[in-house]
Design a protein around this nucleic acid. Sequence first.
DNA 1: ATGAACTATAAACCTAGGTTTATAGCAACA
DNA 2: TGTTGCTATAAACCTAGGTTTATAGTTCAT
Lengths: 119, 119
Amino acid sequence: MKINDVSKLTDLPISTLRFYERKNLIPDIFLQRDANNYRVYSEEIVEFLEDVKALLSVGFSIEELSLLVSQELNLSYELKKQVVEQKIKEIEDVQKRLKKSKKFLHAVLEGKANFQTKC
Amino acid sequence: MKINDVSKLTDLPISTLRFYERKNLIPDIFLQRDANNYRVYSEEIVEFLEDVKALLSVGFSIEELSLLVSQELNLSYELKKQVVEQKIKEIEDVQKRLKKSKKFLHAVLEGKANFQTKC
DNA sequence: ATGAACTATAAACCTAGGTTTATAGCAACA
DNA sequence: TGTTGCTATAAACCTAGGTTTATAGTTCAT
């Protein structure tokens, strides 16, 4: 697949795909170059990018993620495990906060929130 | 309470509290001024700011939130309801994405993710 | 074989969300 | 009463995450 195909399948602008690559977010295994130096992506890149989008959307940074998927660094299994467990913990925290936030929003709606009493 | 107290209780830098205020994120009901023009916060600001932190941390923008809590705009109940229901839907989407993301991270850990096969 | 549509890189640009700096007015205790 | 520590504002500054622009090479349908 060429970059335009990936862009269409993932809804990510071409400029963003190139940007992520510069940030080392795209493992080499998903990405080769052809004779003209055009990017050639494997099919699996699509699912990978969907995961990346999900994680970015809930507050993870490009740097965190690129560290996690980096091959160059060749993190030991133990270190990687540590990092991933940490991430999962963070996600669980976010989920807890979201539950509270939903309550907050419902309170806003019901006019029960403190700052609403004046209205 | 003065700004330093709020800062300590919420773990938000004083500069951030002033910044949020400039962005209309702090309803007047939580915030008055004393004779010297010093900010005086009500106790409830702390819980309010915890909710704000939670929502910001999962991808909501200051502008979205300030619109939601704004008094000036005086949104009709129906409109506010619409906005809040929309937000809650977004939160539920985020929660779904998080579930998928946890699976992804576990796959990374198990070495089952595609981009790991080369290692 | 040529023009429209694709690909590439590098560098400049933009926005959101803060933080820092400069300058000045109160406070509170020794 | 001074000096240490709070408070204030305005403006400059910073970083992450992209996007746009300028310039140039490739491909494909007619």
